[in-house]
Amino acid sequence: MDFDNTMEDLSRDWLQAELDETLDDMFEMEFNEPMLSQEIRRIYKRQHPDTLDNRVYYTNLLRLQSELIKLQYWVEQTNAKVLIICEGRDAAGKGGVIKRITQRLNPRVARVVALQKPSDHEMTQWYFQRYVPHLPSGGEIVLFDRSWYNRAGVERVMGFASEDQVEQFLQDVPEFERMLVRSGIIVLKYWFSITDEEQQLRFLTRIHDPMKQWKLSPMDLQSRVRWEQYTKAKEEMFERTNIPEAPWYIVEGNDKKRERLNCIEHILSKIPYEDLPTEKIALPERMFNPNYERRVLPDDLYVPKVY
C-alpha cells in the first residue's frame, strides 16, 4: 500500500468530515431565523444580496483554521508572544471573528481577554495597569476583546474620562505599545468597521431576536445615538495611535463571513510562522488486568436519558 496516497486520502476524508460537521452551523442559522419577524428577515436579505456562499465560506474557514493550528505550534515551540487587539463599533462582529480564530485552538495557548468595567480600586491605578497582567507570556496568543482603547472610545464619548485623561492616554499609548514590541510581543491591532445602516439593522435583529437580546446593553443603544461622536473619536484615535511599530488595520465587516476570513488571512500574513515538524503520536496498548472486575454504579449517578 502506498503510504503517501493513503495519508492523502485520510487527509481528504478528514477535511470532508470536518466540513460536514461545520455545516451544522448552517442548520443552527436556519433554526434561529424564525425567531426574527418576516419583515426583518426580508430587510436583512435585501441588504445582503452578495453575501459569501456558505460552502465557499466554510471550506476556506477550515483551511484557515488548519493554518492557525500551525501558527499555534510555532508559537509554542519558539516561545513567541502574540497580542491581537480587537476593537470596533458595537455589533461590528468582533466576537464572531474571535470565536472563529480560537474555535480549534488550545485554550491554554490562545486565550481571550474581555475585561469588565474597572472597579473603584482599579480606577485609582495607572490606566494601563489592569491590562498588563493579561499580556502574553512566551508561547501564548492573547486576543483582547476591547482593550485600553476604551479610553479613546466609549470612555471619551460617554464622559467616563475627562478630556485631560484622554489627551494623556493618546500621548502615552504609542510609547506603551513601542515598549511591548521592544519586549518581543507581536502586536496586531484590528478595527472592525460597519456602516451606520448595517449597525442599525443588526441592532434591530437583536431587538427582535430573543436569542440575541442579551447582547444589547444600554451603552450599546447610546452608541446609536452618538454615532457621529464615536466617528470623530475613532478618527483622532487612528491619527494619534497609528504607529509603524503597531499600526491599525481596518477590517470591513458588513459581510460577517468575508470579515472573518479576511481577518484570519491577514493575521497569518503578518506573523512569520513556519510549519514546524511535530512529534508523531502513537497510541499505546491498553493494559488489561484479568482479575479486575468493573463495579456496577448506582442508577442515580447517571444523567437521565431524556433524549
Rank of each mutant, 00 (worst) to 15 (best):
E67V: 00
R260F: 00
D275C: 05
D25S: 12
D50Q: 12
R89I: 01
P133D: 06
Q72T: 08
N79T: 06
H208L: 02
M123G: 04
D196I: 00
I43W: 11
V56A: 13
K257M: 07
L143H: 11
Q129A: 15
E197P: 00
Y57M: 12
E155K: 08
V82S: 09
V112R: 14
A80I: 01
D2Q: 10
V75P: 02
M1C: 05
E87I: 02
E163I: 07
R111S: 12
T278D: 00
V173M: 09
I101T: 04
R224L: 15
L268R: 07
A152D: 02
T78P: 01
L68H: 08
C86S: 07
S66H: 15
D24H: 11
M26I: 14
E236Y: 06
M1G: 14
R224S: 05
V187I: 12
S11M: 05
G93T: 01
V173S: 06
Y249R: 14
L204F: 02
S119H: 03
L71K: 06
R108N: 14
E8Q: 15
K280W: 08
A233E: 06
P107F: 08
G153K: 03
V225N: 09
Y57G: 04
L19T: 09
F169V: 07
H266Y: 03
N106I: 04
V187Q: 05
L216R: 05
E87M: 12
Q38D: 15
A114E: 05
H208M: 03
V113I: 15
E167S: 14
H208D: 12
M158D: 01
L170E: 15
E28S: 11
F288W: 09
K257Y: 11
P277C: 09
Q171P: 00
M26W: 13
E197A: 15
P272A: 07
R111W: 06
R206P: 03
N150E: 10
C86K: 00
R226I: 00
F203Y: 08
H134E: 10
R104H: 15
V82Q: 10
M211Q: 10
T195S: 15
E30T: 03
D255H: 03
I85K: 03
R41S: 12
M287C: 02
I264K: 09
V142A: 05
